[in-house]
Design a protein around this nucleic acid. Sequence first.
RNA 1: GCGCCUGUAGCUCAGUCGGAUAGAGCACUCGCCUUCUAAGCGAGUUGUCGCUGGUUCGAUUCCAGCCAGGCGCACCA
Length: 554
Amino acid sequence: MSSHSDLLAAQIQAAISHAIERGDLIGTVPSSIPLERPKNRDHGDYASSIALQLAKPAGKNPHEVAELLKKVLEKLAEVASVDIAGPGFINIKLNRASQADLVRTILSAKESYGKGTALAGVKINLEFISANPTGPLHLGHTRWAAVGDALGRVLSAAGADVVREFYINDRGNQMDLFGQSVQAAALGQPIPEDGYQGEYIADLAKEILAENPEITKLDVEPRLIAFREAAYKLQLKDQQRVLDTFNTHFDVWFSERSLHDGGKVEHGLDKLRAQGHVFELDGATWLRTTDFGDDKDRVLVKANGDLTYFSSDTAYYINKRERGFDICIYMLGADHHGYIHRLKATAACAGDDPEYNVHVLIGQLVKIMEGGEEVKLSKRAGTIITLEELVEKVGVDAARYTLIRYPVDTPMVMDLDILKRNTNENPVYYVQYAHARIAAVLRNAAELNIASGLDNFDPAQLSHDRENELLGSLAEFPRIVASAAELREPHRIARYLEELAGVYHGFYADCRVLPMGDEPATALHSARLNLCAATLQVLKNGLLLLGVNALERM
RNA sequence: GCGCCUGUAGCUCAGUCGGAUAGAGCACUCGCCUUCUAAGCGAGUUGUCGCUGGUUCGAUUCCAGCCAGGCGCACCA
């Protein structure tokens, strides 16, 4: 069953097309009809500004155009009334019983309500976090851990075939430095000047020594490698463990080394050469990314023969495409925004369409407030906040939800004091509370043996303004999911859930669901119970998309 | 200098194809628990949508130029 908005849009399109055929209207049929749910309830359940847009090319007064469409819309069984307001807005009120039929749709679809097919058949590689395995995940990674995971869920809901991937930067100087640092800690030597500091280095050293006491007896070179590899293994395992507790899961952990060991970098270079954008200069090998909007060309192979990090990036991109991904989404920190041009240019150099095949999301910084003051984050001062510490302070649900509810391209401030509060100030509780509240009503109804289920559902019972408003919000969910997927903006789900929770609380205050005292249960009670069950389902589906728990009790 | 992001209520922030009186939470004032979770609901107050132009029936939204803040501009990783 298609939604009312789809139905109305189709009907308006058909009406316009007829009017043009009859010569009542001049112009073309618009491909999409603007149809919105007005903020002001007096403006009906749906409103369209289509008449204003059609008026000019038709050389007509917007009111005349609106009248034309009104006549057609009024005949629909689902439509209760049509009004023309202001400069030519068409305000449509739906037949309430027909609108209430949505409850049936939701309760039949269950967890699939909200899912769509907009991205069906599209293979998406979603890469996020991709931290060095040289330390614990910190605040910056945490934003991506929450948003990236939620985006993966949202894209899947839109029908995409999503693979979440973590690129492990396990190659290069940083890894060696990491190994040296851990070794120094193990041998009781000072940590190198530009090495890794922090307690975790000492912890790693201790663990490695406990596991393999013989390690110190190795020759200098193999010993360093042994320390590096052992520390790498432990640190990676630790990152995986922490992400697991954060409810963020990856399908693929992709090692940078595997690109090199498997000859994939050379393969990528060959492919780029074949496309004709590779050149030699000053003894180095370059990719002419300036052909496609980058501000300078990039070195692939240094004059000394070493491969650059950029060469790994390009090979990795080519590898992703060869694994069959249509769209590669990169989620990067604000300090990496300079990569956008070169990533897109790389795709173009490989013969791809950078506008379609590559999508880069830039996440702005997260500031932390505690005790009314900004917490200064500094590696040197040891005041870095790790993902694990954040979760210890505020819990997984509050941390995830807060990080997700803002668009990623805006800097955000996390106030830890607010996140610890269980009040309205903390939106995650507001939404979870609505869910728990409904769960309580349903439990009580079961105890009272009130007839529920769709066999006992009469949509005509739901005629209260609050019920109507709630139905309207529930109807929006599929649209919200679709736009969140299309725009890669999971925060829209969170904002929607807050609105839905608010609408439910309003309904709850004005519409008694269960019979009072000895009052007999009526068809109205059953209908409202079903409406509650439908709301519960949508809240649950939405929270699941965010990876936040839908609590039965609070 | 070049590039990316941001500028909306006292605070933290929503507001995708341009639409009707610009929203939410907090803060402040006042009401609502003798029956479903008051972690809730309702009412009131709060704005030069950074500035200046342009596009048009109509601009917080699109375009240009400025101002302010954040972050980047390696044969580093």
